[in-house]
Amino acid sequence: MKTTHWLIINSIILLVLLAMGIYSLSQKEKNVYLDTAEVFNGFKLQKELRTKLENVQSARQAILDSIQLRLTAISSSSDFDPQNPGEEFFSLRGLYQQRQKQFEEDNQRLSNEYDRQIWNQLNQYVKDYGKEHNYTIIFGANGQGNIMYASETRDITKELIDYINNKYERV
């Protein structure tokens, strides 16, 4: 009777320990990480907006190059006097400087706007992904020290990139 009694108690203790072990292991699986840069660069919206930004920047550079060409043509002409370049030269140079400043500010503003749009969507999709997979924490590894090492089994980068692109395109 006494033996059976101890057997039951030992079994219960073992079961409790086993359950705690399993719970502990399952909790650890809930913390994963992603490569922030890879996810950002793999996002289709980012690629589309980057192309758009590059097109805008190219068009603006072409305008500046055109003005620069005219300035060069004036300064290369035989009757050009560096001491007295003339009204047209000053006007064009002023226009070049004005446009250059304006384009720089606009390009930066556009780049910031696009980044904002991309991160607004990315943050939402990562949140959705985390909820769907019951993750406790998703860390973003940016290669600058916040995660020095983590097992590859916890790396969700590739699956996340597929997920966010499917979400974005409504596949």
Binding site: E48, L49, E113, Y114, R116, Q117, N120, Q121, Y168, R170
Partner: peptide, 18 residues
Amino acid sequence: KRIGINDHIFHNGKVILK
């Protein structure tokens, strides 16, 4: 049909609905 909405108020980028 996929509707694309690129509203410039809330800065959420291009949103696609199917």
